[in-house]
């Protein structure tokens, strides 16, 4: 794969409607390789929907999605106008790892099996190669001793770190985080954020939907504030957190930071 592309991920005029409810309105975003983007905003703003539509867990109603400058998908009025061939799409989708709010680990598999499953099944990699890599990843997220445990025996924070290792095992170029700490007890949030921070430092391209303002402020290259299905404001953490321009951003930040 060549590195000659300008944007690793780009959306143009992406809209999403559930029946008569417009969840995303005309969202355009360009992401460069290595960028860390945090999406903040009130619940119901469409943050998660946007993230999920990037890796096709939701089908967009209209708009274009580019991956590495290639037109991945173009839809208008719920009809696909143009797209890459299925195999090519599949290949590019593997470049996106996703971490969910509710972890979604496979409960019938051990920690190590969770991490190894997709590389073995999807990429047909050799088991011992994958296991070696999985152990490294588990060490990286601080869960080396837990490889034989079932997810139900782990705390939420540990489960989420396994989920991160599981996504990383596929060697993705982009990591999508969908409120990764929202389902955690407050004292467990730190461990997960620490892993994410370290990941950002390695140069991973990340898009995080988050309510952790401190994390966004510290780690993000760019912060998007979404409200009512649009990107209401966009800027560096500095701009957004110290000098928000839009009224809605100010109200939101006041409400969040006060509590």
């Amino acid at each position: 794969m060549s590195d000659t592309y300008e944007y690793i991920l780009k959306t143009e005029h992406v809209s999403k409607r559930f029946g008569s409810l417009e969840v995303l309105k005309d969202i355009s975003l360009s992401v460069k390789k290595g960028e860390v983007i945090c999406i903040i905003g009130p619940s119901g703003a469409g943050k998660s929907t946007f993230l999920r539509s990037l890796n096709q867990l939701e089908k967009i109603t209209s708009g274009k999605i580019f991956i590495r400058d290639e037109l991945f998908l173009h839809r208008e009025d719920d009809h696909t106008v143009d797209r890459l061939p299925k195999e090519k799409q599949q290949e590019l989708l593997l470049e996106m790892g996703m971490v969910f709010q509710r972890f979604n680990l496979f409960p019938h598999k051990t920690v190590l099996q969770n991490v190894c499953e997709a590389p073995i099944v999807v990429k047909k990699e050799k088991k011992d190669v994958v296991e070696a890599r999985a152990r490294q990843l588990l060490e990286r997220v601080g869960l080396s001793e837990k490889e034989g445990e079932y997810p139900s025996r782990l705390s939420g924070g540990q489960q989420q770190r396994v989920a991160i290792a599981r996504a990383l095992a596929m060697n993705p170029e982009i990591m999508l985080f969908d409120e990764p700490t929202s389902a955690l007890d407050p004292e467990l949030v730190g461990d997960v954020l620490k892993v994410m921070k370290e990941l950002a430092e390695t140069g991973m391209t990340m898009i995080c939907v988050t309510h952790e303002m401190g994390f966004a402020r510290e780690v993000a290259d760019r912060v998007l504030f979404m409200a009512d299905g649009i990107i209401a404001e966009e800027g560096t953490p500095e701009e957004i957190f110290t000098n928000p321009k839009a009224e809605r951003t100010r109200n939101f930040l006041n409400a969040v930071l006060e509590s």
Binding site: M96, G97, F100, F103, N104, A118, V122, K123, A167, M170
Partner: peptide
């Protein structure tokens, strides 16, 4: 449903 989504996100 999360099990389907996680599988899909992992390319299965």
């Amino acid at each position: 449903k999360g099990q389907f989504e996680a599988s899909k996100a992992l390319g299965m």
